[in-house]
C-alpha cells in the first residue's frame, strides 16, 4: 500500500496536480479539499498527472468527476495526463474517456 500524495505546481496554462499512490475510498476527498483551496481563472486548464497513481477505485473516479464539475463551474478546463493502463481501461468501461481530454504526459497536456 502506497499512501496518497498530491503535489501542486503552476505552469503557463494553469495548475498541475500530481497524484501518486493509491487513490481510493479512504482518501478520495483529499483531492476535493485541495481543489477548494485552488483558484482557477476562466480559460485556464487544470491538469491531473496520474503517472504515479498505483490504484484508483470508484471513489477515486468520483473525485475525478467532482474535479471536472469544480473546474467547469469556474469556466476552466480539465485534462488527465499519463493515465495508467488499468485506470484507462476502467475509464473506457464507464465511458469517461469521452468526457475527459486525455494526454500521454503533462508536457502534452500543458502545451495547447
Amino acid at each position: 500500500m502506497s499512501p496518497l500524495r498530491i503535489t501542486t505546481r503552476d505552469t503557463a496554462t494553469g495548475p498541475v496536480l500530481e497524484i501518486t499512490g493509491e487513490f481510493d475510498y479512504t482518501n478520495a476527498t483529499e483531492l476535493r479539499d485541495l481543489l477548494g483551496t485552488l483558484t482557477l481563472r476562466p480559460g485556464r486548464r487544470l491538469v491531473l498527472d496520474l503517472a504515479g497513481m498505483t490504484f484508483c477505485d470508484s471513489s477515486g473516479i468520483t473525485a475525478l468527476i467532482a474535479a471536472r464539475n469544480h473546474v467547469h463551474a469556474a469556466q476552466a478546463d480539465i485534462a488527465l495526463a499519463a493515465v495508467p493502463a488499468n485506470t484507462l481501461r476502467i475509464l473506457r468501461i464507464v465511458g469517461l474517456d469521452q468526457i475527459f481530454p486525455l494526454y500521454p504526459d503533462t508536457d502534452a497536456a500543458t502545451r495547447s
Partner: peptide, 27 residues
C-alpha cells in the same frame, strides 16, 4: 451506461458489447 458488458452463454460464451455507454448521472 458505464457498465461492463453482459455475457451471453449458449454452447459457448461471449460478451454482448455495449461500448461507450456513459456512467448514469454524470452529464
Amino acid at each position: 451506461g458505464g457498465h461492463p458488458p453482459a455475457l451471453r452463454a449458449d454452447g459457448t460464451a461471449d460478451f454482448l458489447p455495449t461500448p461507450g455507454g456513459l456512467l448514469v448521472g454524470v452529464l
